[in-house]
Nucleic acid binder design. Structure first.
Lengths: 209, 209
DNA sequence: CCGAGCGCCTAACAACTGTTAGTTAGGCGA
DNA sequence: TCGCCTAACTAACAGTTGTTAGGCGCTCGG
């Protein structure tokens, strides 16, 4: 009894956690621990409520996961779209690509638990959940395809590269950073530059003979 | 009883499944479904035995997973090492890198359920299992670092790229193909060429003015 | 000041998890 | 033929999972 009294006073603010609170916690836990090992009871405990209470806000665990996945894509999509459209009309291809790459990487590594959770758990989640997230995902992919196609038509990109494949390679490579990126070892900003350097110009020392 | 008799005759060869049989099945299931959703009972059923029987060959589920992870790295390590060392001594940097990239991708996409399982589930597995797999992993990483360093010292690679980071980028990008590669849409061989093209020379159309 | 309802809690369920103990059928060497 | 070893099997355990039903307190509009 002393416990519950203490808990009331010391740690629990009287404000409700709410749907968004649960979602934030879930996104963070999914990002940190993956899908399978994060149970509703873990989410509830981290949110300071009990497992059953989650069902006041969500109809099922899958509903939570789908929500997290969708928000994750929306954040990175908005971020990338806005970064590119903020550039002057006559911006060169290289600058545009650097902006898009930077925006994606920033959302993934700095900005959003939702985006990193999406990348982390998408491959672990039941088929039905993946399907529910697909439309949102496709929209972001289309954004990239449009961007890359425009640059290729302009003659800025090599003409023989398949756009779909290029997009898969690029986003795949960027997303893979989530497995090893350590903010203590270097900023996302610097990493973004390195990725752009490599993808734009390659790693071979050019023998301009 | 009819059941068990039928089963005996029709599907179960009288030869024992054995430790290797269980391991093969486990690798395939882990590759296909991830770590969390594959239970010992699923592995047992796919192998045609009962869950408890697995404990004759392995001391725990983690022991199975560690074995799968280790074999996965060893396969890709051997494959890459052999592909590179098979080349003549005076082979150019570009050819060497293409061979290494091709070997890694082939092990991942064509050759081995163990290697693909490793890439797929490493991030989902308990910390202790990851730790057990680390030595094997580090040896493969060192192999790449040695290769890349030698090429850089030779002057074949741009001198300002950090080797560790380059290796992380490269392997990360290659491993990411596992999420979307579809053998019906193109061979691993062709994909390997595209990856080498992009990493070696970049995607920008060169204006050699 | 009172009722409505929002946001949470308690308790339990059935299913599933990894794991253990004890048992058994069959083949091989002595 | 005897006895051992291999590779299974059966049955149960304790814990965890997602999920449901019903109840309780606090806040706010009338």
């Amino acid at each position: 009894m002393a416990e519950s009294a203490t808990r009331r006073v010391s740690e629990a603010p009287r404000t409700a956690v709410g749907r968004d609170g649960v979602l934030d916690i879930a996104a963070r836990l999914f990002r940190e621990q993956g899908y399978g090992t994060v149970s509703l009871r873990k989410i509830a405990e981290a949110a300071g409520i009990k497992a059953g209470s989650i069902y006041y806000h969500f109809g099922s665990k899958d509903e939570i996961v789908v929500a997290v996945l969708d928000v994750g894509i929306q954040v990175v999509h908005d971020n990338m779209q806005q970064a590119v459209s903020a550039l002057p009309k006559d911006t060169g291809a290289e600058t545009i690509l650097r902006a898009a790459i930077g925006a994606h990487l920033r959302a993934l590594l700095d900005l959003s638990d939702y985006t990193s959770a999406n990348v982390r758990i998408f491959g672990q989640v039941p088929q039905s959940v993946r399907d529910a997230n697909l439309p949102t995902r496709r929209a972001y992919e289309a954004e990239w395809d449009t961007l890359l196609s425009r640059l290729q038509e302009r003659g800025a990109l090599k003409p023989d590269v398949d756009i779909r494949r290029l997009r898969l390679m690029l986003i795949g490579a960027l997303n893979a950073t989530l497995d090893w990126f350590d903010p203590d070892r270097g900023s996302a900003e610097a990493l973004s530059r390195t990725y752009a350097d490599v993808f734009l110009n390659g790693i071979l020392e050019r023998q301009d003979s």
